[in-house]
Design a protein around this nucleic acid. Structure first.
Length: 513
RNA sequence: GUCCGGUUCGUCUAGGGGUUAGGACACCGCCCUUUCACGGCGGCAACACGGGUUCAAAUCCCGUACCGGAUACCA
């Protein structure tokens, strides 16, 4: 039997981190087993479902490259089938009409209201005391024919228990007494979640239901429906939940952007890195290894490596440096500095394009210069965004000066105002005239413009001025790149090229601010 | 309340009767680098608690505490 799994989000918001991981695990399991990964949009709650959410979820999945097989199923399209199933159960006496008037929709906090009611019942509630449960067929039919509204409830046996083996949590038992006669069909004819899920999973021939642990009790209800239908339930695998740093619920409302997949895409994360991070949240291959390619994840993924305890997604609100999980950030930086250069460049290109820093020459005449530059600066970058922000001075003459860097490396040494242009003269004398900035990498001087030669020129110059090398180097770095941090000054001079280095050494703009 | 689950460094986790309880991130120190990183080396840091079982318990059993989930004519 080939494995068929599904990711079934309800479109009530963007794809958040927990759902993304559920999708990932489903995807990995399907690919690992050579099965199918299906997508079903559970849009039966018309009031809350939006097309925009659906699109956003699809975007998130696309970014993570979790491509699904077969057509997307929209649950609302199957409402008639769900209703038919409920009617069938009713006809077979496995469900009954409940003529109890629908309770007024409870106010503000539905969750709390339910909890309060449950607590008030003190565990003495009899789940089988519905007065319509054993209504005669004739009377039930008569009332229905008379137009009296009714919900359809599953007739759960008074004694016994549901039992299934969860692939993650093991044997799960629940006494029938704990389970109400769940509503299958609302009095307005609207099919409810558990019915819809079971019907669709059957129709889609789902073999493994991999979803959040918050559905564990739903699994019991669903097993009941499967039993009533006489169909063997799929294998369930419930996933531990991803919690906020305070161990509380990670919610869109409370935590906002940090839980949204689009945030990571827009912040310059690599899908591969984020996937890798997500995979390790609640699952482990049981080895001391952190970096896994997609192929490796697919190869190693197994249900028995999934944990039973919740994991915390660690981040610090209002801390720009810790706005998201440290490990996710590290993972992304690790990918940026170690992934194949070609691959990285395919992501850097759109980033530079978006920042209007891209030039076609980077794939043509200046290809090797571009590659070397990326290789040089990727070492200290964390996200794709860094290439257009911190890396701006490499791709444009129009870059900003960090006031702190200027103060620390330039203003403190007023001599640099004349020294740096002098150094430019020295470069010119040594390496030849600056021709133009259009081909900054081409060096035409008598002496080769290499790190080694640059070093001796700078060193001689430093001695002559009776200053420290650091003063010159740091001053030049700030003048040439606008910031106090960056690659070694020598490789910076070389990478920027003779012409651009000379031009920038002579620049007086920063002194006039 | 009831039912279900969980609990190993701050975080993600390995281990599952005998280990100096391992790794990663974060943090700290040293080296490298006349910057900042990267890299290298090192450090800090954990088996929730109480009872059993056993020669031996982080590991098995029971209980307690704490945390989480569920408990709808929501999904």
């Amino acid at each position: 039997m080939t494995v068929r799994v599904r990711f079934a989000p309800s479109p009530t918001g963007y794809l958040h981190i927990g759902s993304a991981r559920t999708a990932l695990f489903n995807y990995l399991y399907a690919r690992h087993t050579g099965g199918k990964f299906l997508l079903r949009i559970e849009d039966t709650d018309l009031a809350r479902s939006t097309e925009e959410s659906t699109r956003s979820i699809l975007d998130g999945l696309a970014w993570l490259e979790l491509d699904h097989d077969e057509d997307i199923v929209f649950q609302s399209d199957n409402a008639d089938k769900h209703r038919a199933t409920a009617k069938k159960l009713l006809a077979e006496g496995k469900a009954y009409r409940d003529f109890t008037p629908k309770a007024a929709p409870s106010v503000a906090n539905v969750k709390d209201a339910i909890k309060d009611r449950a607590r008030a019942a003190q565990g003495e509630k009899n789940m089988r005391d519905n007065q319509y449960r054993d209504l005669s067929n004739d009377e039930s039919n008569a009332r229905a024919a008379a137009g009296e509204p009714f919900a359809i409830r599953l007739k759960v046996a008074a004694t016994g228990k549901t039992l299934f083996e969860d692939a993650v949590y093991g044997i799960q038992e629940r006494s029938y007494a704990e389970t109400e006669d769940l509503v299958l069909l609302r009095s307005d004819g609207h099919p409810l979640y558990n019915l819809a899920v079971v019907c669709d999973d059957i129709e889609m021939q789902i073999t493994h239901v991999i979803r959040g642990q918050d559905h564990l009790t739903n699994a019991h209800k669903q097993v009941l429906i499967y039993e009533a239908l006489g169909i063997t339930p799929p294998t369930f695998a419930h996933l531990p939940l991803i919690m906020a740093p305070n161990k509380g619920k990670l919610s869109k409302r409370k935590h906002g952007e940090v839980v949204s997949m689009t945030t990571y895409r827009d912040a310059g994360f690599l899908a591969a890195a984020f996937r890798n991070f997500l995979a390790l949240l609640g699952w482990s291959a049981g080895e001391e290894k952190e970096i896994y390619s997609l192929d490796e994840l697919i190869e190693k993924f197994a249900l028995d490596g999934i944990h039973r305890s919740n994991a915390i997604f660690n981040f610090t609100e209002n801390d720009p440096r810790r706005w998201t999980d440290d490990k996710a950030q590290w993972m992304n930086a690790e990918y940026i500095r170690t992934m194949p250069l070609d691959e990285l460049i395919s992501f850097v290109k759109p980033e530079l394009k978006a920042a209007k820093l891209w030039r076609e020459e980077y794939e043509d005449d200046d290809k090797s210069w571009f590659e070397n530059t990326i290789k040089l600066i990727r070492q200290r970058f964390f996200t794709l965004k860094d290439f257009s922000s911190q890396g701006r001075a490499y791709f444009s003459e129009d870059y900003d000066f960090d006031p702190v860097a200027v103060e620390k490396n330039l203003s403190k040494f007023p001599d640099l105002k004349t020294w740096l242009p002098e150094l430019a003269d020295r470069f010119e004398a040594e390496f030849g005239e600056a021709e133009s900035v259009s081909s900054p990498h081409v060096s035409k001087g008598s002496v080769a413009y290499t790190e080694e030669n640059i070093e001796s020129v700078v060193k001689a110059f430093t001695e002559e001025k009776g200053t420290k090398l650091g003063v010159i180097m740091n001053g030049a770095r700030t003048l040439l790149t606008g910031v106090a941090v960056g690659p070694s000054m020598l490789s910076l001079f070389e990478t920027l090229g003779k012409e651009r280095s000379i031009l920038r050494l002579r620049s007086q703009v920063v002194w006039n601010v």
